[in-house]
């Protein structure tokens, strides 16, 4: 079984985000970018399935600027076998919407015919939590989002999902889409020799036009604002003082 893993290059989760003063967006020039943390978990899960002999090949796909190749090289260094880069933007500030990403991935699935797609639950830049579900819809496949455990057997994926009430276990028929939550696994660090090897692994370069997909956004960006800042608070000296402050504020 082949596994397809979509990986997105996003602002590193440790970087403090700055909103541009003209309201046009977030400043991404010269900031550290990394693979979306949830996608590292997805790659790790796919590579583990290959190590267990359940998967035969792991293919990573990224859609974005040409530099998204970096995220793919990381995936290859973690153990993916080959990669597909779909260059869909010239400017790092152009985010390709989940619907367009899903349409491109739909075409990639048509060519690659994977038995399973493992994506992240959400991209930490747009916080959409949508692409995997949209892809499942376009393919007419079952989906299991926010996975914290995954078992493959007899043509099905048994998935433990993190849901509002706790955990839910579902079984989806393969081929299917699974999206990862934080506790599915702990992704490995790529070793230096593997990083070197990854440079030689095959990476195919494509464009949306090759797939006949229109990536024009459906959502027009009106403005981007900084959230309201909280007024500075105070340090209290004791539990007694804290309690009296809370009583004064009417909350204790």
């Amino acid at each position: 079984m082949k596994i397809l893993v979509p990986v997105k290059r996003v602002i590193d989760y440790n970087v403090k985000v700055r909103v541009k003063s003209d309201g046009s967006g977030v400043d991404l020039a010269n900031v550290k970018m990394s693979m979306n943390p949830f996608d590292e978990i997805a790659v790790e899960e796919a590579v583990r399935l290959k190590e267990k002999g359940i998967a035969t090949e792991v293919v990573a796909v990224s859609i974005g600027v040409a530099k998204s190749e970096d995220a793919l090289r990381t995936a290859l260094a973690m153990g993916a076998d080959r990669a597909i880069l779909i260059t869909a933007a010239d400017d790092v500030h152009t985010d390709i919407e989940p619907l367009a990403v899903a349409k491109l991935l739909d075409k990639v699935v048509e060519v690659e015919e994977p038995g399973l797609v493992i994506a992240g639950k959400q991209a930490i830049d747009n916080d959409m939590n949508a692409t995997g579900q949209m892809l499942a819809a376009l393919l007419g496949w079952g989906q299991a989002t926010s996975a914290s455990a995954l078992e493959i057997a007899d043509g099905t994926a048994r998935v433990t999902r993190e849901v509002d009430g706790g955990l839910q276990v579902v079984e989806v028929k393969l081929p299917a889409i699974v999206t990862c939550d934080l506790r599915l696994n702990e992704p490995r660090y790529a070793s230096l020799p593997n990083i070197m090897k990854a440079k030689k692994k095959p990476l195919e370069k494509m464009t949306p036009a090759d797939y006949g997909v229109d990536v024009t956004p459906r959502l027009e960006l009106v403005k981007t604002d900084e959230p309201a800042a909280r007024a500075a608070g105070q340090i209290v000296g004791s539990v007694d003082e804290l309690i009296s402050k809370l009583k004064e504020a009417g909350v204790a």
């Binding site: 602002i11 985000v17 930490i124 459906r218 959502l219 960006l221 981007t224 900084e226 959230p227």
Partner: peptide, 17 residues
């Protein structure tokens, strides 16, 4: 309006759908 980047920015979008 919706938060993006872990709520570090609030984006206002107009849907043409």
């Amino acid at each position: 309006a919706r938060p993006i980047y872990a709520g570090n920015a609030i984006q206002t979008v107009k849907s043409n759908d």
